[in-house]
Amino acid sequence: MTKLTVGPWIAAQKLPTHDLARDRLAFLERTQRRGTTPTVAGLPLVGMGGSCGKPCFALPYTVTWTQTNTLALEHLAADFGCFVEYGIYPHLKLQDGGQEVAAVQDWSTFATVYLRPGYEQAEELLERLLETLGAPLHG
């Protein structure tokens, strides 16, 4: 089981204290740390969710939801003790307690996966999502 190893990079991006919320120079200093971004399972970290703060990884393909790939996603979720909640896009949530561990966004020109960094199986889940949603299932 592997948690995401991007924690220090993410921490360096976040506002350290609310006192610095209006400090432009502190913001510019934090953005300098974005020059190099980590990868996990061969996927680039492209940023963080604006509201959720979860690291976001770009999939190397777009996703169009079908009966086939949503069923495959549900089976994958079950392998990780999760269920799928379908909102604007699918969220994988733990059966025990409902904590969100992943979300797959498909409503842009590329697909992304948001992952809870402290989830014990985050890297394995990302690898399996990459396989499960990849061709030929995504179209």
Results as ranks from 00 to 15, higher is better:
T2R: 14
T2E: 11
T2P: 08
L4E: 03
T5F: 05
V6R: 04
G7D: 03
P8M: 03
W9P: 01
Q13W: 03
L15Q: 04
P16S: 12
T17D: 11
T17K: 12
T17L: 06
L20V: 00
R22A: 08
R24P: 04
R24Y: 07
L25H: 08
L25P: 04
L28R: 11
R30Q: 00
R30A: 07
Q32Y: 01
Q32E: 14
Q32P: 07
R33L: 13
R33M: 03
T37V: 15
T37C: 10
V40C: 13
A41W: 00
A41V: 07
A41I: 00
G42P: 09
G42D: 11
L43T: 06
V46T: 15
V46G: 06
V46Q: 09
G47Y: 05
G50Q: 07
S51P: 08
C52R: 15
G53R: 09
K54M: 15
K54I: 13
P55H: 14
P55L: 14
P55F: 15
C56D: 08
F57N: 09
A58S: 12
L59H: 05
L59V: 03
T62N: 06
T62S: 11
T64H: 11
T66S: 12
N69V: 04
T70C: 02
A72V: 05
L73H: 04
A77W: 08
A78L: 09
A78I: 01
A78T: 12
F80A: 06
C82F: 07
F83A: 11
F83V: 13
F83D: 12
F83P: 00
V84R: 06
E85L: 12
Y86G: 06
G87T: 13
I88S: 08
I88G: 04
H91V: 11
L92R: 05
L94T: 06
L94Y: 03
D96N: 06
D96I: 00
G97R: 00
V101M: 07
V101Q: 11
A102N: 03
A102E: 07
A102W: 01
V104C: 07
V104M: 07
Q105I: 08
Q105C: 12
D106G: 00
S108P: 06
T109C: 05
T109D: 13
F110L: 05
F110D: 01
A111V: 01
T112K: 15
T112G: 05
V113S: 08
V113G: 05
V113E: 02
Y114H: 15
Y114V: 06
Y114A: 14
R116K: 15
P117E: 12
E120I: 11
Q121E: 12
Q121K: 14
E124P: 10
E124S: 10
L126T: 14
L126M: 12
R128C: 09
L129K: 10
L129W: 09
L129A: 06
L129R: 06
L130N: 11
E131A: 13
E131F: 01
E131L: 10
E131N: 10
T132Q: 04
A135L: 02
A135C: 02
P136C: 01
